[in-house]
């Protein structure tokens, strides 16, 4: 089972990397890009665990290791 976890800054945190990409896109003429937020993607390959269990345990992993809850939020999807 493959799980994709997306970690990004909370909306209240300034994301300078995202801002830099946004700026470059504007410089290149892509004016319609309104905002860019940068994040990290983790792809986890799970074995010997049910989908229900995974749905419970992934937030724990994300909260404990993959994201720093003070500045970051996460979401995840189970890909199968």
């Amino acid at each position: 089972m493959k799980v994709r976890v997306l970690v990004s800054f909370k909306d209240s945190i300034l994301d300078p990397q995202g801002k830099t990409v946004e700026h470059s896109l504007h410089t290149l003429g892509y004016d319609f890009v309104d905002e860019v937020r940068q994040g990290k993607v983790f792809e986890l390959e799970l074995k010997g665990i049910s989908r229900e269990k995974a749905e419970k345990i992934i937030p724990e992993i994300a909260d404990k290791v993959l994201a720093n809850p003070i500045i970051e939020k996460f979401s995840f999807e189970i890909m199968d």
């Binding site: 945190i13 300078p16 990397q17 720093n68 003070i70 500045i71």
Partner: peptide
Amino acid sequence: LELGLLPGAMLRNKNL
């Protein structure tokens, strides 16, 4: 900070 012995977090330097 990661340990929680001190509050807050670190972001990238402002000039990246």
